[in-house]
Design a protein around this nucleic acid. Sequence first.
DNA 1: ACAGCGATTTGT
DNA 2: CAAATCGCTGTC
Length: 211
Amino acid sequence: MNDSAFPSLDRAFFARPAEQVAPELVGCLLVRRAPGEALRWGVVVETEAYAQSEPACHGHRRRSPQNETLFGEPGRFYVYLTYGVHHCVNVVTDRRDWANGVLLRAVAVPGAPERAAAGPGLLARWFGIDRRHDGRLAAPASGLWLAPRPPAVVALLERQRAAGDDPLRQTGRIGISQAQELPWRWYLRTSRSVSRRAPGDRTPRHDGLAA
DNA sequence: ACAGCGATTTGT
DNA sequence: CAAATCGCTGTC
């Protein structure tokens, strides 16, 4: 399997507000090429948007060496350590000097256990992502990038949408203590690899995987 | 300096 | 439901 089978999303895709990019990233592919290892990839099934204007965003309070990447150019990865234990992977969106990004919360990996990357920390662990990836461009040259929705995923989404059933669910964000009312989390209803249920979400779990 | 705490996960 | 575990942030 060649890298060319996974074309990289370009900067224009990310140069838009996070709440616009986040739902469109669901169904796209996260691809990882580490030295001496097999290519790893999976379908993004859950995302969250963050913006400087709301208090849950790391860049809301102030700009610092820690969150500098979030203020930088779109199309780069913003990776941080949380709870001293787990890494969280974001893609920077919108424009320079405005903290904006999309948190990748869950990925469905074909051939792997369903819950292998069913959460921000698990996802980072599975793909071998840590702070060294912070600031890297989302491109094959970085060994880590995002690819557009493959035809099979596009077909699945269209089929369900045509049946009057939107496979993309929108809820409040998870694990934050501020701005919980903001519905900036999106996930693929048909996936069993979603991290967890948001408070109040009664959506039934559905069979059939999106990959 | 120092206590507090987090965009999580796991086990009791 | 609490521990694990690190480093940033605000305060003393």
